[in-house]
């Protein structure tokens, strides 16, 4: 008697497991394109966490109180942790940390464009937590059920930690909005600058996102870019209203028939321009990353030399 395995090609067996919601694990057979897509997506995600430390790190020394400083420090440390969870998930697919970092530093690998916008005022720390992490959560929660096991497990960990990030951002916004008029103005001004770039975080329109269909079939992605963007707007408009702020889009209006908000078109020219490297901070972000990596090289080498010497002295290893 022939078993299923003998009848089906490896590709078909693989797809059958995906369709049955059986997770794929590192040593399992997988199509090359699946592996490549995941390495690209997970490493991009890891790079975003790493570069994402920079716009907030910018404000650690200038946080308005010791409490805010401690919170921001913990949040930035979490971002580093998230990057590390994700890099190690990507490494299970056969790439190396050195390779991924080299691709980031050479500009070959991308990271989320949102981090190429500057953080000009303290209210930006509010917006980054409330809006940017809010958008990240919407992207990340479905990834906890993504088809690749190590990625899904890393995302469970990330999501657990992310909700504090969003809440501390909202609290910053709320405090500003309940403060002096000039503080509320600062909050509104930050919302004006961050609203559209945040909507861009969900990626190009479905009609212009050729990889979406394959990623949905492989159950790497569970929702399309436009579905998530709509969810985000539906979530955020009432929260902005609660704060007494106005989202900078005059076309935002509740659509009773659709049970969702109508909203305006993202400036896709700006989106692609920032992706291609022409955002306000692309150059600075990459330079800061490369500099940190290069200046840390002697530490990495010294630690290795020390470990080797001690292993030799103690007669372990070898």
């Amino acid at each position: 008697m022939e078993t299923l395995e003998q009848v089906l090609s490896p590709e078909a067996q693989f797809q059958a497991r995906i369709d049955a919601d059986i997770r794929i694990e590192p040593k399992d057979w997988m199509p090359d394109a699946y592996r490549k897509t995941l390495i690209r997506q997970i490493s991009q995600h890891a790079h975003s966490e790493l570069v994402g430390m920079l716009p907030e790190g910018n404000w650690i020394t200038r946080a308005p109180s010791l409490k805010r400083k401690s919170i921001l420090l913990a949040k930035v440390q979490d971002e580093a942790g998230h990057g590390l969870y994700l890099y190690s998930a990507a490494e299970t697919l056969g790439t190396t940390r050195d390779q991924m970092l080299a691709d980031l530093h050479s500009g070959k690998a991308k990271y989320s464009s949102i981090f190429n916008y500057p953080t000009l005022s303290w209210a930006d720390m509010g917006c980054v937590g409330w809006l940017v992490d809010g958008a990240a959560i919407l992207n990340q929660v479905p990834l906890c059920r993504t088809s690749y096991g190590p990625y899904a497990r890393a995302m469970v960990r990330v999501c657990k930690e992310e909700s504090f990030h969003q809440r501390q951002g909202f609290e910053i916004m709320q405090t500003l909005c309940e403060g002096a008029p000039v503080q509320k103005e600062m909050a509104q001004e930050a919302l004006n600058r961050w609203w559209w770039p945040t909507l861009m975080m969900f990626g190009p329109k479905d009609s212009e996102s050729p990889n979406t269909e394959q990623s949905m079939n492989w159950r790497i992605k569970r929702f399309t870019n436009d579905e998530l963007r709509q969810k985000f707007v539906d979530m955020m408009v009432p929260q902005a209203e609660f704060l007494g702020l106005t989202v900078p889009d005059p076309t935002v209006q509740w659509n009773e028939a659709r049970q969702g908000y109508d909203f305006g078109e993202v400036d896709w020219e700006e989106f692609w321009s920032v992706v291609k490297g022409n955002g306000l901070c692309n150059h600075d972000r990459l330079q800061a990353r490369v500099q940190a990596h290069e200046e840390g090289a002697w530490v990495r080498e010294a630690a290795m030399a020390h470990a080797k010497k001690r292993a030799e002295r103690e007669g372990v290893g070898a």
Binding site: Y85, E91, P150, R153, R157, H306, A307, R310
Partner: peptide, 9 residues
Amino acid sequence: HVGSLHAAD
């Protein structure tokens, strides 16, 4: 098991 990381020793 929770994940992995890099370290010198």
